[in-house]
Simulated assay, not measured.
Amino acid sequence: MEIAFWLLITLVFYTYVGYGIVLFILVKIRGSKVSPKIYDSVNEVAITHIVAAFNEEAYIEEKIQNSLALNYPQSKNILWIVTDGSTDSTPELVQKYENVRLFHSPERKGKIHAVNRVMPLVETPIVVYSDANTILNQESLHNITRHYIDPKVGCVSGEKRIRQDDKDEASSAGEGMYWKYESFLKKYDYHLHSVVGAAGELFSIRTDLYEHINPDTLIEDFYLSLRIAQKGYKIAYEPEAYALENSSESIKEESKRKIRIAAGGHQAIWRLRSLLNFFQYGWLSFQFISHRVLRWTLTPLALSLLLVLNAFLAVNNILYQLILVAQLGFYGLAFLGHFFQKRKIKVKALFVPFYFTFMNISVYQGFFRYIKGSQSVLWERASRKV
C-alpha cells in the first residue's frame, strides 16, 4: 500500500510539474531541434484563413477587420467565413465585406463538418484556422508561415492568450495561469521534438496534409494536428502569433468548455492510441503520454486514490497523518475558493487550489459524457466577458 501511495504521488508530481522540468533539462542536454534561421526568415506564402462562426454577430465584424488589417500581403491573405447553422445576423454582416468569402448553410452539423465542407475548395498551400471571438496580433501570419521553410513542419500552433484585469475572479485568473504554463510546455515540446496538439484559437497546416475528419470528432483541432504529427511531420510552436480572447464569463461557462475538452480528450486518446507505441513514434509517444494522456486519464484517478490510501496509511503514522492533513487542507482551500467565487469575492491565494480541483473534476465529468455518448459536437459555446 505504501509503495502504491508513493508511486501515485510521483505520478501526480510528474504530470503537473515534473514533465516541465524534464522537458527543460532534455532540451538543455540535447540542444534545441529548431533551426535559429527560422526566426530570421520571411516566407509570405499565400494562405487561406478560415474562420468557422456560429451566431457570432457580437464579434464577427471586429474579427474581419482585424484579419484584413494583419501585416501580411493582402493579395496572399484570403479570408473565408463559414457560418453553418447561424440564425443571427452573422451571415448578413459578413456579406458587407467584398473581399471576404462567405460560406453559409442553414443546417448546423458542427464545426468540423463545416470545415470539411470547404477544405476541398482551398487552393493555397497553407491554411490558417482561428476562432471568431479572437483577435490576432499584427505579425501573426508572418510569424506562422516562416516555420514552413522547414519541410519537416506540417502544422504550426499559435499561442492562446487570455485578457485579464485585476477584477478577474478565480476561474478567469486560473484560466490565464493555466495557459501561461501550457505555453511554456509547448515551447519546450517544440524545441525537443514537436508540440503535442494545436489549439483551435489559432493554428495552421499544410493544405495537402488535411484529411477528412469524422464529423463526430469533439476536439478537431487537437486530433487534426496530431494526425499530421503521426505522419512524421512536426507541429511547430510560435508564441509571437497569438490569439487574444476574453476569459469565460463565469465558472459555469468555463465548465462547459473544460468538460467538452475532457470528453474530446478521451475520444482522441482512443482514436490516436497507436501513438502510445514508443517503438514506432519515439519522442512523440513520450510527449503524447506525458503531456496529454496522463493528464486526461491516470492522474485524475490517482488524485482520488491518494486520498483513500492516505486515510488507511494515516492510522498510527504521523508522517501519513501530516500528508493527509495537507491533502484535506488543499481541497478545503479549493472549496473555499468555490465558496468565495459564487459570492464574487476575490482571494488570490485560493486561485490555484480552486482551478486545479475544478479542472480535474471536469475530467471526470468529461469521461462520463464520453462513455455515455452524451457530448454532442453541436456544443454550446462558452460565453466570454465583453
Rank of each mutant, 00 (worst) to 15 (best):
I144T: 08
L350D: 15
S274G: 00
V22K: 03
E254F: 03
E98T: 12
A241S: 10
L306T: 04
P91Y: 11
H113K: 05
K37V: 10
I149D: 13
A69C: 07
F339Y: 15
I9T: 02
K252V: 03
C155T: 03
I219G: 01
I29T: 02
H191F: 11
T357V: 00
R257W: 07
D221S: 06
V195P: 02
A53I: 13
L192H: 12
G158F: 02
Y281G: 01
F354V: 07
F288R: 00
G197C: 13
K252N: 04
I135T: 14
L322C: 11
F358K: 15
L102P: 11
Y181F: 15
M359L: 07
Q375Y: 02
A334H: 07
A302T: 15
Y188P: 12
K348V: 04
V127W: 02
K33G: 03
A69K: 15
V308H: 05
S285L: 09
G18F: 04
Q321N: 06
L185A: 05
Y97E: 13
Y19D: 08
T207F: 00
G265R: 10
R161P: 00
E98Y: 04
M177A: 11
V34P: 06
N317E: 13
L301M: 10
N246G: 08
M177Y: 14
Q164Y: 10
S248R: 10
F354N: 05
W6N: 14
H291L: 11
I269E: 05
N316K: 13
V315A: 01
A268T: 05
V42P: 00
R161F: 07
S304M: 10
N77H: 11
G265V: 03
S194Q: 05
I371E: 14
P91H: 04
E139W: 04
D84V: 02
E98I: 08
L141R: 05
R384D: 06
